[in-house]
Amino acid sequence: MRILNKTNGIWMILIVLSFGLLQGAILLGLIDAFYEITLVTILINMILAIGLNVIIGFSGQFSLGHAGFMAIGAYATGILTKQFPNYGGMAAGIVVGGIIAGIVALIVGIPTLRLKGDYLAIATLGVAEIIRIIILNMGDLTNGAAGLSGIPYLSTWYIGFFLAVVVLIFAANYKYSSVGRATISVREDEIAAESLGIHTTRYKTIAFVMGAVTAAIAGSIHATYFSVISPDQFNFMKSIDILIIVVFGGIGSLTGSVIAATVLGVLNVFLQPFGSFRMILYAIALISIMIFKPSGLMGTKELNISSFIRKKDKSENKKREEKVR
């Protein structure tokens, strides 16, 4: 498949278009400093949701410790950029945070992903707590419960947008690669996949590690955009927030996650004054989605441009299919 085909071209145009629209809105003052924070929050949540979707949606495993991996990225970048307050420091922070998160995910994933069932959920929950407790007890390096402050403001929404696009493209290519298809087959039927010679543990672990690394990237942006991080920002509630985005968008749909992160991010601005009532609404929404429309907004489907194109020359495809038969 050529890289520069019609589908990729249209996606490229869409990405550039949304970037242009956002940039225009900022230049015209439609998005002021306050809404820019919302924008970056949406982009961070997008990265987190895409990462969690790779774990839950593709491999069918259930991780509840996404905030823990985000904390690893945030602290790695926070500590490094305080030493080297430049983009080199930030890049190093992203790489180091990603590597540590990946290693932790490997250590947790290999034993728990051998098992069938929802052991990963409970193990990741424990791991996120362990990460938080370790961060709390690392003394001057992490500054305990008070957290790190004065992290240089290195991230802009450009960086957030760029990384969100990179993560999205990476996840999309993963989904349609042979590794991704093997991972999805594990989700569909673990026993059947195993009998076809798919090393189920390996593919589950790959998806889990990828999710953890993207969470660390999101954490890095969070640290360098907001400048202040503390352990209690990365608690269980944060993991649930991300889970809500994934469930709303549709478990297994990347474009669903992108849409849900945007919609919920905008909705949050309007629901802010309601405080904890907002949480009640989210909880009720979460339960009713699971009961009435467990597939979420998009199900496992994607907003698929190539299918739009394909519709045009459907007749041609039919001919081809007949030939195959």
Binding site: A121, V247, A283, L286, I287
Partner: peptide, 10 residues
């Protein structure tokens, strides 16, 4: 499992 989390959250 997600429903159970939703109930707990609620």
């Amino acid at each position: 499992l997600i429903t159970a989390i939703g109930v707990s959250y609620l």
